[in-house]
Design a protein around this nucleic acid. Structure first.
Length: 579
DNA sequence: GCCGTTTTCGGCCCGACTGTTTTCAGTCG
């Protein structure tokens, strides 16, 4: 039973209790536990063994006992009892936009509807007619909701959502009377996937702006259109839709609104609790005195945080993961401007689409000081991996290009495969000829945690390996991370002087935020690389940096914020340590 | 169900929009 399994079960219990009509605060406490567990980077089994379950925020005696029951028996009596009353397939109904626990309960009690299939049949057969709360419009909305559910396939990856969001932001910015438009929501927080997009704008005539917004050419369906709020669906690729919300607010309350709509929900709840303790109230318009309505702060986010005795908290940290203990805004949080180069870059020599020079020029245009060319090794046949002779010739070509090129340094490296037994795809003597080595697992991801951990540790113990590429091998929305003891990897990375990559490609974002945070806490260095296969690939750096910021990484922990000579010393130090 | 510089009991965040058995409950973020 993994942490994710336990978290999912607590969420299921919350949903089922809600359908039963249980006290909302009680339901919420189950959700809180699920979230806490979902955020953990240590194994629940270890915490349970140390008797520390009760120290987790939101976990009391009752929840701790339930977690132990799950870990010991793999089951939860409470869940079994709930599922004896309510079929599990009913939980799917909650995923339909516009359907909440109350409506689901009515459908089930009054019409025996307990699955998406049954609901579709009932609508088609007109069986919902006369049901309380289900008028003609509601039923049509539900049909549309089911259709959306089938088309949207869940959450959208950050990189894809970002380009949709930018298109919509620019469209709104171009409307007459719009003075400011900003991203909010999980996109602004840099979450690896987003459910919907939130835009916030300042304009006098809200109703008109909302109307124009819902009539933009990208819009496939209007959901809501009021005086201050509009909601639409946008088809961003064939058959894939995402919801985009726009809120129009007066300039005087922009800060309050931006804070409010950036979230996260958990962060905002904590913030509003803080306000209430002062006798104040916080909403999207202002932080104000509850009794008199007198405004304390509204115009800027910073003013609101400061009034509540907090430093301004960067959006990426607003997840209720300890940011309320900050005494000041972290000044050294890594930022896009800190990145001096990219240490994981492919060319047409293996599976890239551009030459060494084209990649170097694109990097120089971005203001980079250096890149390292790291094409695939021989075992990655599908990626046209280089055999030793081709690698030597390629390295010579890189060095020749480096001599010709002004304004940027090009290093010759490799992305060498970590093989099934933990050995590497090239001999040490060959690796020793290179400036820097990235080592990655590309095959055999299905092995067990012990094997994968040992493979990675063996690679880190090689004196020539400087970076572990995409350490967990996950592909967001497509492939689970391989089984791996990430904490052991982080400790070994720190011990051996090996950097762990945050692969910035929005498909990967690997290491993920919480693992990056763990790595830094273990004393490991991280490298944020794009793994670019073409010049456009460098654009992905922003997503890697967002992930790093969500992992609270300081500039000093990120290898490629360092000047090149310091990276050279990092490489040299590890090579010198070999026995 | 959790939790305590108001509290071991009694609280627990806030407002827009929609549909509608028309005065507000349900949903959402």
């Amino acid at each position: 039973m993994t942490n994710a399994d336990v978290a999912r079960i607590f969420n299921d219990v919350a949903d089922l209790l809600e359908i039963k009509g249980a006290d909302a605060f009680r339901v919420n406490s189950y959700r809180r536990v699920a979230r806490t567990i979902g955020d953990l980077t240590t194994d629940l089994t270890d915490l349970a063994a140390r008797g520390e379950l009760g120290t987790l925020p939101g976990v009391g005696k009752s929840s701790a006992a339930k977690i132990r029951e799950l870990l010991d028996t793999g089951r939860l009596k409470q869940l079994d009892q709930l599922l004896a009353e309510i079929p599990a397939s009913i939980l799917d109904l909650l995923r339909i936009p516009g359907m909440g626990p109350k409506k689901v309960a009515v459908l089930w009690r009054e019409r025996g509807i307990d699955s998406l299939t049954r609901l579709k049949e009932a609508i088609a057969a007109g069986q919902l007619a006369g049901l309380k709360g289900f008028g003609e419009k509601s039923i049509r909305k539900i049909s549309e909701g089911i259709e959306f559910l089938e088309r949207s396939a869940g959450r959208t990856r950050l990189g894809q959502a970002y380009s949709v969001a930018e298109t919509m932001r620019e469209a709104v910015a171009g409307m007459k009377g719009v003075r400011r438009v900003e991203h909010a929501g999980s996109l602004r927080r840099g979450q690896e996937t987003v459910g919907d997009l939130d835009l916030l704008c300042v304009a006098a005539d809200g109703g008109r702006i909302v109307r124009q917004f819902t009539e933009l050419p990208y819009v496939s369906r209007k959901i809501v259109a009021g005086e201050t709020k509009g909601s639409v669906l946008v088809e961003w690729s064939s058959g894939r839709e995402i919801q985009v919300d726009l809120r129009v607010v007066p300039e005087a309350s922009f800060g309050a609104a931006w804070q409010y709509f950036t979230g996260s929900k958990a962060h905002n709840v904590r913030l509003r609790e803080r306000a209430v303790r002062q006798g104040w109230t916080l909403n999207e318009y202002a932080l104000s005195e509850a009794a008199t309505g007198k405004v304390i702060a509204a115009r800027a986010e910073r003013e609101i945080y400061e009034a509540l005795g907090l430093p301004w908290i960067p959006p990426e940290l607003r997840e209720d993961r300890g940011e309320f203990d900050l005494k000041q805004t972290p000044a050294d949080l890594v930022a896009l401007e800190d990145i001096r180069g990219d240490l994981h870059v492919h060319t047409e020599a293996s599976d890239g689409h551009a030459t060494i020079e084209e990649m170097a020029l694109a990097a120089r245009d971005r203001g980079y000081e250096y890149i390292c060319i790291t094409d695939h090794s021989v075992s990655s046949t599908i990626a046209n991996g280089l055999d030793p002779d081709r690698l030597r010739a390629h390295a010579a070509a890189v060095r020749a290009a480096n001599k010709r090129m002004r304004g940027i340094t090009i290093w010759a490296g490799t992305e060498v495969d970590i093989l099934a037994d933990g050995s590497l795809d090239y001999a040490d003597a060959l690796l020793a000829e290179l400036d820097l080595v990235v080592a990655s697992i590309h095959a055999g991801l299905g092995k067990d945690a012990r094997t994968n951990t040992q493979r990675t540790i063996a690679a880190m113990r090689n004196p020539y390996v400087n970076i572990i590429g995409h350490p967990t091998g996950r592909m967001i929305n497509a492939r689970e991370a391989m089984a791996l003891d990430v904490e052991a990897i982080c400790r070994e990375a720190a011990r051996t002087g090996t950097a762990l990559e945050i692969n910035a490609n929005f498909m990967r974002l690997d290491l993920k935020d919480q693992h990056a945070r763990l790595a830094q806490a273990c004393g490991a260095v991280l490298a944020i690389n794009t793994d670019a296969h073409a010049p456009e690939g460098f654009e992905q750096m922003r997503f890697g940096v967002l992930t790093a910021r969500r992992g609270w990484l300081s500039r000093a922990s990120v290898l490629n914020t360092w000047p090149l000579r310091k990276i050279a010393a990092f490489v040299k130090r590890k090579r010198a340590k070999k026995d």
